[in-house]
Each structure stands twice: as C-alpha cells, then as structure tokens.
Amino acid sequence: MSLLAVRDLTKRYRRGGKTIAAVDGVSFAIEPGETLALAGPSGSGKSTIARLVLRLIEPDAGSVQFEGDDFLALSGTALRSKRARLQMVFQDPLSAFNPRATVARALDDPLRIHAIASSAERPARIAALLERVGLAADLAPRAIHEISGGQRQRVAIARAIATNPSLIVLDEAVSALDVSVRGQILELLLDLQARERIAYLFISHDLGVVRAIAHRLVLLDTGRIAESGDARAVIDAPQSAIGKALVAAAPRLNRIRP
C-alpha cells in the first residue's frame, strides 16, 4: 500500500465569473522513503496540490489516502493529531516562522502540541533536534530573524521532523537559498531520508535540483499531469511539450564549457 495515494484531485477557482481548474484530476502515489517531485511552470498547480494534500485548502473533488486513512474525512482533533505524520517545509524560511519566534519556541510547539515530550524533557529534545539538522544547540535562544537563511531552513526541517513524520512536503524548499547553502540542505534532506525513511513530496520549478534529488517526477501543465516517470529518464528525454520546453529553458554551463 502506498504511503500517500492521491486520486483525481481537483480544485477550481472562480475568477471574474469564469471557473478555472487550478488542479484538474491529478492522481499520483508516494511510497515510503521515496522522493516524488512535482515540477512545472508557474500556474501549473504544483503548489496548490501541496496545499490540498496538507489540507490547508479543501479540494472540490478527489481523494487523498495517507497511511491507509481517508485523509479528507478527518477533522478536528483526529486531523490535528494525524498532522504529526505529514509535515511541510516552506520556500521562504523567514516568512514560515512567527516573526516573534525564537528557535526554541519554533521547535517547542510541535513537541508540546503532540505531547511528544514533557516540559522538563523538551529543552533536551530541542537540542537533539538541532543536532540532527547540523546546528549547534546554543542556537536555541536566538530569534529566528537573527540567524542566517541556511540556518533558518535547517530549523524549519528540524521542526518538520520533530513529530517523526513519514512524509514531508517540500514546497520550493531550496529555491530561495544561495547555491552553496542549497547543496548542504539537499545533502541534509537525503541524509534524513536514508536514516529515517522519510518520503518527500518535492515541489520545484528547477529541473536541475529535481534531477539531483528525486526518484520519480510528475510534470504538470495547467493543472494536469503532462508526463511522469523516473526523474532522470523524464528529464533526459522528455516526451511532453512542457517537458521539452522546461528542459530547453534550463540554463546550463556546458553550453560554454567545452
């Protein structure tokens, strides 16, 4: 059984009297410990799918099975406790945290809400979480806005793994980072996946990053799946029009390098 199975997911928006399907009958599945990338141009619906899967917005049609449960049928306390297993990392690590938060508070919230550790144990848990994402424990009392962008994204990952999730949605999670930091964060994600068999739904517009980290790829165009398959196979020989256009548009150094 798949970890996450999405069937015929549809979300429509009404804009100026017209109804537009942002996501139109999309189906895919993610296996435990796997990275599935959703890629496509802006407006292809990839971020909307992320928000639908996380139930930050509600779909108009379709089903989402997560760990065997009908995820769309959950509500209230049942939904909130299930959320521990399905986490998210946002694109901009600065806006993903309460502007008043410290590192410690950002990590304390999930531990407290899901009663993972008592208040006496939590400081030690927070220190351990920071260590797992390659940060020093003495970062805990610092304010989120004081630390660097790369450190912030590591804290965001620590917050996501605090509740031992089986799936993390990474919505353009490395797009806003400097290239040198981006490589380190990708390494961290791969390392966590290898050690803890966390699956990733990796949303990105950058095929270079997708090719480096994803097992499988779903290419989207205007809310529909254009093509899908093994990530490297799709990128190296795209069949769909949007796949060909995305590959052709990606800047590459080897046009200059001999």
Partner: peptide
C-alpha cells in the same frame, strides 16, 4: 560553478528506494 545543479550534473541521490 560546482554548486550549480545543471541537467547534466551528477545526481546527489545515490540509490533507489
């Protein structure tokens, strides 16, 4: 230059799940 992840770069991912 090395940090650039082009479509021809060696993938970071080492093994299939």
């Amino acid at each position: 230059l090395d940090a650039h992840l082009g479509l021809d770069a060696a993938p970071l991912l080492r093994q299939a799940p």
